[in-house]
């Protein structure tokens, strides 16, 4: 991958924060001498992203995701390390770079509240120096994809959260950026709006070939959009590879669910086949080692015989895998 669009090497960001204990004495002491502590928000991460990829950037709160996106978009200067996006060093914030990328934050607004979005779009047209023809076709395309017809002529403050987010997306993409950093793009939105935004991102990526790096706490976003995920925790890279392999690498077990005709699952002793995770009326869920899963399934089918109504073997839910990654803090695995 020599033509990486995003190329990050040993990127670090250390914040210096002031700390003090509670109480009057500590407060008075802090007037004279402040205790400062270094916090490693990003502790040396390395990855590359090729053109047109949609990559999920995962990690719990405080993992360093947003800090990384801010460095890649040029808002923050790193403490150490290097990065290049589209061949530019982001934090030099050259106009040529700013004109080709976007950072969309789900909980931030960049539109002027008091005027309709259509007027903000005109301002952005001039700022980004978008030729009239291209501007019209982009606006039409975004209007169609995001169903904005009604929305762009109302003052932004009169829009609902979901409506505003759609308009924000349009504003953020009006200059047809080649790279989009999306930070929690669906946060706070209802399910149907989340689905629409997801569809839009996928469609945008397909139509324009833009490279997308997105963070989200909604695994559905990631599953729907990203073939590849990068997982970071406490500023370090834990996993970088296909989403499909994440479960295999990080959660070396499968989930077998067996449903019994007689509904007597609670009385059946299935501990011999694997770890029983749950027993409900007629249904038992087992966790078994990945390697032995086919063999255990076979034995279950054999042993339960005609009592078995249904059986399924699945990877654990992605949320569970992620949670496991974060709680166990495994060492870096790269696929």
């Amino acid at each position: 991958m020599t033509d990486a669009v995003v190329d990050v090497r040993e990127l670090r960001k250390t914040f210096r924060v002031t700390e003090r204990e509670e109480g009057l004495a500590a407060t008075l002491r802090s007037f004279v001498k402040r205790h400062r502590k270094d916090v490693n928000a990003v502790a040396g991460i390395t990855f590359r992203i090729g053109p047109g990829e949609v990559v999920g950037f995962l990690g719990p709160n405080g993992a360093g995701k947003t800090t990384t996106l801010k460095m890649l978009s040029g808002l923050l200067h790193p403490s150490a390390g290097e990065a290049s996006v589209l061949g530019y060093v982001p934090w030099r914030r050259e106009n040529a770079y700013l004109g080709r990328m976007t950072l969309l934050m789900g909980n931030r607004t960049q539109l002027v509240w008091d005027i309709p979005a259509a007027d903000s779009f005109r301002v952005l047209q001039e700022i980004y120096r978008i030729p009239e023809g291209q501007f019209r076709s982009t606006v039409n395309e975004l209007t169609e994809l995001l169903e904005l017809q009604e929305l762009v002529h109302k003052p932004v403050r009169n829009l609902s959260l979901g409506e505003r987010m759609k308009v924000e997306f349009a504003a953020g993409l009006i200059h047809s950026p080649s790279v989009a950093f999306l930070d929690e793009p669906t946060i706070g939105l209802d399910i149907s709006m989340q689905v629409r935004i997801r569809r839009f991102v996928a469609e945008y990526n397909r139509r324009t070939g833009a490279t997308v790096l997105l963070t989200s706490h909604y695994m559905d976003d990631v599953v729907a959009l990203c073939k590849r995920v990068i997982v970071i925790h406490r500023g370090r890279l834990l996993y970088d590879g296909p989403l499909a392999d994440l479960a295999e690498r990080m959660a070396p077990y499968k989930i077998i669910t067996a449903t019994l005709h007689d509904g007597a699952a609670s009385s059946t002793d299935l501990d011999a086949y694997g770890t029983v995770v749950s027993r409900e009326e007629g249904r038992v869920t087992l966790r078994v080692d990945r390697q032995v899963a086919p063999e255990r399934t076979g034995r279950l089918v054999n042993d339960l015989g005609s009592r078995l109504a249904d059986i399924s073997v699945e990877d654990p839910p992605i949320e569970e895998v992620i949670d496991r990654v974060f709680t166990s803090e495994q060492t870096t695995v790269s696929a």
Binding site: S73, L75, A96, L98, G99, T102, R108, T109, Y128
Partner: peptide, 12 residues
């Protein structure tokens, strides 16, 4: 309030 960020990210 972090409102400066979007402005810093535009070529103006």
């Amino acid at each position: 309030m972090g409102r400066l960020s979007p402005k810093l990210l535009r070529p103006l």
